[in-house]
Simulated scan of single mutants.
Amino acid sequence: MKILSSYESSRARSCLAHFIIFSLTCYVHKLESAQFTVVGPGRPVMATLGGHIVLPCYLSPSMSAQDMEVRWFRREFTPFVHLYRRGADEFGQQMPEYHGRTELLTDGIMDGNVDLGILNVRRSDEGQYHCSVQDGDFREEAVLELKVAALGSAPCISVEGHQDGGIRVVCQSAGWYPQPQVLWRDPNGQPLSASIETKSEEEGGFFKIKDSIVITENSNKNLSCSIRITHMDAEKQSVTFYISGQLLPKPHSVIPTRIKNQVA
């Protein structure tokens, strides 16, 4: 009985020793996987159609991500937008629409910067992106949003005849995305009264704008038209438009009106 008891005691000590070794191994492995937070921008990133954009992402606290897995993806983990693993880029399961257009910017990777560059920005690039960083069994990610805009043609101002006791002036432009806002301004840059009509048509995914305003005898005769994308704070402005001559038509007569364009 003493021999059996001694055997059981020895076996118990052996099991305990194996358990301690196993626990220590797991703990050391966990320590080897760095603990960090992945941080993205706090607001949407703005890009211009056809341009180059950088999606910012970094580790906090600052540490090297050179030997970690960095994966940028959209809705699905795979296929991905860009994958960096074991110190090199991998393109085997990259989304076809991103082939040849992405680059992990490794200049700051030793400090935990894992920014992604996208070339020749397309409308389809707009939306959410996940910046995922994995070290061993530990993985964290940040979600950021990319907004894409296309700046259309320079606004063109023209006159479309008399209306409501004044002259109807029209501002037109095409090739905008998303739908822009039209602003009429006086020579001091102050907004004029609201336009009387705005027409917006979508052609091939881009917007064509036609906006009208009526200039009366009491209106400011010098004006310009600006078309802007509000969330990007980007706009294009027409030349300043000068109108001279009597605007109010007299009964049974036609009043000649002299109109000219001059660059602002």
Rank of each mutant, 00 (worst) to 15 (best):
D89C: 06
L151C: 00
N222P: 06
A194C: 02
V170F: 06
R122E: 11
F36R: 08
S33V: 08
M232Y: 12
Y27V: 14
I3Y: 06
F36L: 11
H99G: 02
G87Y: 00
Y7A: 14
A234G: 03
G127R: 12
I209A: 05
L183S: 14
C225H: 02
V170C: 11
E217A: 08
F91W: 12
V159K: 09
L4W: 09
V159G: 02
L59P: 04
I21R: 15
F138L: 06
S173L: 00
H231C: 06
M110T: 13
S253W: 01
S5P: 11
N261W: 10
Y129N: 01
L151M: 07
T240Y: 00
S195Q: 11
K147W: 01
Q134L: 00
E145R: 14
H231A: 10
F80V: 09
T25G: 10
Q163V: 00
V133L: 03
N261L: 12
Q66W: 08
F91N: 14
S244F: 04
Y242A: 11
K260N: 09
R11F: 15
G87V: 00
E32Y: 13
S33W: 07
G92L: 00
L24W: 07
A12W: 01
P44Y: 02
P56A: 00
I196D: 10
G204F: 01
R139G: 09
L247V: 11
H52F: 02
E32S: 15
I157N: 06
R85C: 05
K250E: 06
L104I: 14
